[in-house]
Simulated scan of single mutants.
Amino acid sequence: MSTAASAKPAVFVARRIFPEVIEKLSAQLDVSHNQADERLSPDELIARVQGKQGVFTTGSERIDARLLAACPGLRICANMAVGYNNFDVPAMTAAGVLATNAPDVLTETTADGGFALLMAAARRVTEGEHYLRAGRWQRWSYDMLVGQDVHGATLGIFGMGRIGQAIARRGALGFGMKVLYHNRTRLPADEEAAVRAEYVAKDVLLRRADHVMVVLPLTPQTRHYVGAAELALMKPSATLVNIGRGGVVDDAALARALREGRIAAAGLDVFEGEPQVHPELLACSNVALTPHIASASLPTRLAMAHLAADNLIGYLLHGQAQTPINPEVMA
């Protein structure tokens, strides 16, 4: 390695990402890169991060007290994701390591993805495709694959951050839906009015909504936020969609509710223990499943990667990052 290269702050990119983003990082930082799509084991990750000042993560690599203790030179971890349940933020703050994420740039695309799952589940698109491909479509019947309307229905949203509000706008303004929401804190009145949403208690939302959309991060407080008790409150005709994080919905309880007809359908982009999916969910015909791709448009994924890169460059070279999770570290 040249003297010039070694003078640059060293960073590790934990997964294969866009070549142009690697070029951008390499112009200003000393970059090493895991060019595979597979997640490194905790021990492998520690070995690759040792001696580095920064690490580019994709939302799956766990940054915890063990890694921080083994990598005392680490200064920043930049997530190419809006969620950051892979970060032990208190431990990072105690170690003086900045955490950043990639909000805003994926809001509208993720909201599109959530609505796509809602439409697919409510209108039984996945079931219909499987039915057709299996050669079962031989004749018409009035009740063949009938689903539930989305237009004019009641949409309930758990989690009213940027993505939740974008979904509310689509529901209210695009589909004429009545929008209910429940959040840790209520929105100001002008923000509620802008998205035409009504704040209600959690149990009221579950009982009244025709379609429930979960847009919550995974925290100790939100784990199994929707479980057997919550599913029991929903209408038998209702749809549940989770685009938040795996573990916010109890997947085993959801599979039972779907199998027993206690709710009509579900759409899931995130799962407990992903990339593994609960086998009972895989056996359910009335669930639309996608592999954590709600933000997966090419422009959005590229913007997410550039933002993570900008955070690394900005902090390591200038002491500033655009989207810090624990900004007190910068202070």
Rank of each mutant, 00 (worst) to 15 (best):
T126H: 08
R301K: 06
A283L: 09
E328K: 15
T100K: 04
G113Q: 00
E61W: 10
N311S: 05
L268N: 03
G267T: 11
G54A: 05
E108D: 14
F87W: 04
D149R: 15
Y225I: 05
A111Q: 01
T300Y: 05
R62K: 15
V277E: 09
D104M: 10
A111I: 01
A288Q: 10
P275V: 10
Y315D: 02
V195D: 02
N79M: 03
E127W: 10
A27F: 05
R223S: 08
R208C: 08
V11G: 06
A283W: 08
T110I: 03
H130M: 15
T109D: 14
I293C: 06
R259K: 15
L307N: 03
F115I: 02
S237N: 12
C77I: 00
A134W: 01
D64Q: 15
D30C: 09
V89N: 11
Q322W: 03
A168M: 01
R139I: 02
Q165H: 08
A4E: 15
R66S: 11
F158T: 12
A303V: 02
A308T: 05
W137I: 09
R62V: 11
L258I: 04
H130G: 12
V179W: 01
V248G: 07
H292S: 07
A303N: 07
A303P: 00
L132D: 03
E192A: 10
A197L: 00
T222K: 11
R259D: 10
V329A: 05
A121T: 05
D112H: 00
G261W: 11
K235Y: 06
T300E: 06
L25G: 04
A189L: 14
D64T: 14
A99N: 06
S2N: 14
N79S: 13
R162K: 15
G174M: 01
L254P: 03
G247S: 03
G171A: 04
R256Y: 10
W137A: 12
A91H: 10
A309T: 00
A266E: 12
E61V: 11
V82M: 11
V97Q: 03
K24T: 14
E129F: 14
S141W: 05
I243N: 00
S295D: 08
P299C: 10
R39F: 06
G59C: 13
P72V: 11
Y84V: 12
I46S: 12
L173V: 13
R256A: 12
V105F: 13
G314L: 06
T58D: 03
N242Y: 03
N311C: 03
A111W: 04
R262N: 14
M92D: 04
A266R: 10
A305M: 04
E230S: 07
Q53M: 03
E108R: 14
P19R: 13
E44I: 01
M160C: 14
L45Q: 11
E38L: 09
E272S: 08
A296V: 04
E44W: 06
P327T: 15
S297N: 09
H292W: 12
L206A: 10
P217Q: 13
Q165A: 15
